[in-house]
Design a protein around this nucleic acid. Structure first.
Lengths: 157, 157
DNA sequence: AATCAATAGATAGCTATGTATCAAATTGCG
DNA sequence: CGCAATTTGATACATAGCTATCTATTGATT
């Protein structure tokens, strides 16, 4: 047997793996409602942003690039859950709005996300979660990606 | 402003984001060598597995499904870095081997991975990294995904 | 006022991941 | 011994992320 990977080497590998597993678990639970992570995450952020958020603001909150959000919104719009409105003040921008049809879907999302969190964090102390989150924050900072939503959350402390 | 996400809610989001950023950073550094994460990660695992590992074993070590590995190997084989050999003992399986051309590439990968780790972990204590890794392990366990390579590493302790 | 730079969103094309399914080979049970 | 179940790798299709590039609109500078 060859030499095993040390903690730091394992870290990146595990990080990617856990992120994929997490996504898969949520996809599995929400699949029957026609939702995938990119869509439910976008709906969730949309519900927590001020009204009339633009696509740019929403993309920054979700943590994806413009083109990624465009396709997600295309799907959500086709499903009748959101609508894009051209704003008179700046005709380049489009504000994104939840439609009434999204309300029950959002309830489902909140419930499922809470259930997954309960499952995942059940045996972890708050201190461990906080430490891990802090580490993730620092890594994100070093890698140059700190979405607006996260900075705002930090400022709330 | 609406209510911010709490620590647990943020956790999943940050996890996915940091994993993407990490991948992007390594891709950026290795792009000039024609490597992307899936390829360098596969080469790295291959170099640390016993000789004549099958595709199935390699997929489990890397932490991806069969079809994902198949396509990665297709690329690596086309680039002349690895070769697949049909084994006489079980003609269903194919063992995967590094070719001599892969040696300098692996050196490059090791050096780059070490540099990225140095950058990422520079301001983090060993204790924080270990705690975070433990949290990731536990989450992976709850989500049902613990690749063989990780279990082996654990057993080394 | 005209022109040029910057910004917002959309589109195309790449890489990568997953599930579902298939063919070939092997295993094992009756 | 023979046929069904299992295993391995490959393929098809869908989702999702990215960069690069395009159009439309706005803003800024001269």
């Amino acid at each position: 047997m060859t030499k095993p990977l040390d903690d730091q080497e394992q870290f990146g590998l595990r990080l990617g793996l856990v992120a994929r597993l997490w996504r898969a678990e949520i996809d599995r639970r929400l699949a029957t409602f026609g939702l995938t992570e990119s869509r439910w995450l976008t709906l969730l952020h949309l519900s927590r942003l001020p009204q009339a958020a633009t696509q740019r603001e929403l993309a920054e909150a979700v943590g994806v690039r413009g083109p990624t959000l465009v396709r997600t919104l295309d799907r959500l719009e086709a499903e009748g859950l959101i609508e894009r409105r051209t704003e008179a003040s700046d005709r380049r921008t489009k504000s994104v709005h939840l439609r009434a049809e999204a309300a029950p879907v959002l309830e489902r999302i909140e419930a499922t996300a809470a259930a997954v969190r309960a499952q995942i964090f059940s045996d972890l102390s708050q201190a461990e979660v906080t430490t891990c989150l802090k580490v993730l924050e620092q890594i994100a900072g070093k890698l140059g990606g700190t979405p607006r939503a996260m900075r705002l959350a930090d400022e709330d402390r």
